[in-house]
Nucleic acid binder design. Structure first.
Lengths: 197, 197
DNA sequence: AGATTGACAGATGTGGTAAAAGTGTCAACA
DNA sequence: TGTTGACACTTTTACCACATCTGTCAATCT
């Protein structure tokens, strides 16, 4: 049998994807995990801690996957494009994130505005580390600023799906951030077909 | 005496900045404009039309100001920087916009997500036209994509104020979009002092 | 003993309703 | 012609009874 806490986190993500974040109840999570509420409270001290652990696990998995892809490519612009592409696909295909953005986006507002941009700062850290590894010639300040721009674009694409497919967007962002507007015409239609998995 | 409709729009913006968008009442607007509700309804057929006219006027003024500044500068990167700087200052100093983002950002959610990104598409049009004028060597598709990125960044900065001052952000965005990451180190501290008005 | 659970107290959220405020439109007035 | 008090209708607010949920026991089971 899987680790109990992993099973509980799976149940939490599943329940949230079905009923939404605002309607998430620990009774529902416990039932899906095959145990009762008091047992669940032995593993997680509160509902808030349960949610925090779940989002941390989901976000960590995404960051790890993107990190792996990025580190497997030497050339900065190609690595950037592959990382952005994977990130776009992960957020688009994540059932819970998709559910929240589509049906209850208002819960994201406090995370994006009030809490000093909690989401922004959480995403910016791994993004900044990746940028630092791929653009070693940039100093720390330039890295931070480039990471800020990239983070804002990623959040924007996650909240408001672009018209173009992820392959185009990834190639576009990588081209502009790496080489500026002058490199834009190099993003031709063939990029789509050859990159489509 | 000023034109009645202009006075009504002034009153509407003022009332919304004080009481918020959700608490905006046409009785309040009428009182501030120095007339009664029935008279106000002679000028605007409904509350919805009044709000639409107000945001259209405010947005139009901003777009016009940015357009003027951008068209006064030939060099693309400098024009881009000046336009972004002015846009950042305008949104930061706009009392109503500031009030909405700070105290009732949830009203922005439907505008940014559901309505097919009504705000995004409204802002993208003038941005796209400016980009097309300043980067004439780019084809229509490249212009649209560059404008999309610029629009997303502007909206992001409006919703979530950056750590750096507008002068830095403007120089940064202009440098990256025009020439890519390689041009980043050229954004030094002197840029701030010499640009601060 | 260690893990699990039914059951409880307090907090939180839901549904329904009556009062209040707001919208849009008259006919009457200046 | 331009303005407004007053009206019907809709939407919002305030309240309360009720249901649900959270977090924590002591009791139960293995």
């Amino acid at each position: 049998m899987l680790d109990a806490e992993e099973r509980i986190l799976d149940a939490a993500v599943e329940a949230a994807a079905v009923h939404g974040i605002t309607r998430l109840s620990v009774a529902d999570v416990a039932k899906r995990a095959g145990l009762s509420r008091p047992t669940l409270y032995k593993h997680f001290p509160s509902k808030e801690a349960l949610i925090a652990a779940a989002v941390q696990r989901e976000a960590g998995a995404m960051v790890g996957a993107v990190n792996t892809v990025v580190d497997g490519i030497d050339e900065p612009r190609a690595a950037l494009r592959a990382g952005v592409l994977l990130a776009l696909r992960l957020v688009r295909d994540h059932p819970l994130l998709d559910r929240v953005v589509r049906t209850e986006p208002e819960v994201l507002v406090p995370l994006l505005t009030t809490d000093e941009g909690l989401v922004m700062s959480a995403i910016r850290l791994p993004v900044e580390q990746m940028v630092a590894r791929k653009f070693p010639h940039l100093d720390a300040v330039a890295v931070r600023r480039l990471a800020d721009i990239l983070t804002r674009l990623l959040v924007s694409y996650a909240l408001n799906a672009p018209d173009d497919p992820p392959e185009i967007v990834a190639a576009l962002v990588a081209a502009v951030l790496a080489d500026g507007a002058a490199s834009l015409p190099s993003i031709a239609a063939h990029t789509v077909t050859e990159e489509t998995r």
